[in-house]
Amino acid sequence: MIAIIKYNAGNVQSVQYALQRIGADSIVTDNVAEITSADKLIFPGVGHASPAMQYLRERKLDQLIISLKQPVLGICLGLQLMCKHSEEGNTQCLGIFDEAVKLFVPREGTESEVGKLKVPQIGWNNIYNFKSVLFDGLKEEDFVYAVHSYYAALGNETVATTDYIHPYSAALQKNNFYAVQFHPEKSGTVGETILKNFINIS
């Protein structure tokens, strides 16, 4: 059984629908026993880092998440909360990954970029430099959908890269912890491949 961790952040329903489309059953839960016994966990998230961390701490879900031994996939804010620190609300996060989460600084686009690079980034961007089973079966430069103002810098745990304003971590991985900055649940067939790859991790 796949458990989607329930907390005060959005996109939970979209993740559950996406899993349904690839034929995977899931439950949405904040119950410790259900989380501990799940085969795989998804840690979703859309929203603000500071209230999200506060919510997790109040329910001691922060300690639970870092102690998990089964595969965990963080999505968007989920990835950022799995890092050490976020500039959003100057928030201490879970510290699973060493990378720092920073706010994009907008800049003018180059000629090929056509137009200003605004914040948040909203839309489809390509990912490359794959170093994880999550991306098995995909082509370098395949497109995924992202919506975010903060990003995790490149580091030792980076397993896919995206360029927006500058290169940053599209995905991170350490031991049983996986995370993507973009939304696989909204990234068409590419996203579905990534979710299937995660589900098939043994």
Binding site: Y17, R21, Y145, V147, K186, S187, E192
Partner: peptide
């Protein structure tokens, strides 16, 4: 829509 469509 949300259960059938895989784009935003």
């Amino acid at each position: 829509i949300a259960s059938d469509i895989n784009i935003p």
